[in-house]
Amino acid sequence: MDASSCARDAAALADRVLGALRGSGGVGLADFLASRADPTAGLGAVRLVGADIFLPHVVLNRPLTAQDAEVVAASFEVFPQATEPVAPEQRVMAWHDWSTARLLATLTGDAAVAAPDDPAAVLGSVEKWARWSVAVAQLSSLAHPGATGPVVDAVAAQPQALCRGVLRAALRRDFVIASRLTRWVALTHAMGVRLPVNPVVLVDHVALRVGSEPRQLLDLAVARHLVGAP
């Protein structure tokens, strides 16, 4: 699989999700995959965008078609989940996949999926908040409207470290990390946690600087929805 093809396909898929959130219809995963030159990269893109492919179903209550569910299931067949994640990337991937599989099971009515392991193993120590916040950013697909689970609880319990992380990312002008953390800040705000930053001002600040990359625009669309901003 060509990593750059997979990243390009993920951007195209995120753009479809954005369009669906704006009311252009469904994501059309089967149609998306049929339009890809490399089906492996296309299925990789489905896994890379992860639970975000279900945002129109979560936010707008759209039903998931059997064809789209089959595409997600096929992505898990082609790229099997790590049974015993060891490396940091594998741990992130395990939680990212858990979020996708969990939403798929919710939407299809299948049995619930077991969580990978202790969230502290993937997030690390909050004392090292800079590194902790990068791990939180890597798990941004877990921060969707109505999200629950061990990682959500662990992040919501550390509002100061989360806000330090997003401000550090903005100061470093790393708006990939900043947009992902903004999404977590918005979710934490929506959960009723008091934060040392104003989430609406933060969303506006990052939105002016994030550029036109669809995956970051999707992060901000989720953040806007969570804070109730237009």
Binding site: M1, A3, C6, G44, V78, E89, V92, I177
Partner: peptide, 20 residues
């Protein structure tokens, strides 16, 4: 499609994209 462990490792790196 058939994937290799290297493909899976590549996908993991894309998911766990490091900071700049």
């Amino acid at each position: 499609p058939v994937t290799t462990p290297a493909d899976l490792a590549q996908l993991s790196k894309l998911v766990a994209e490091p900071e700049s």
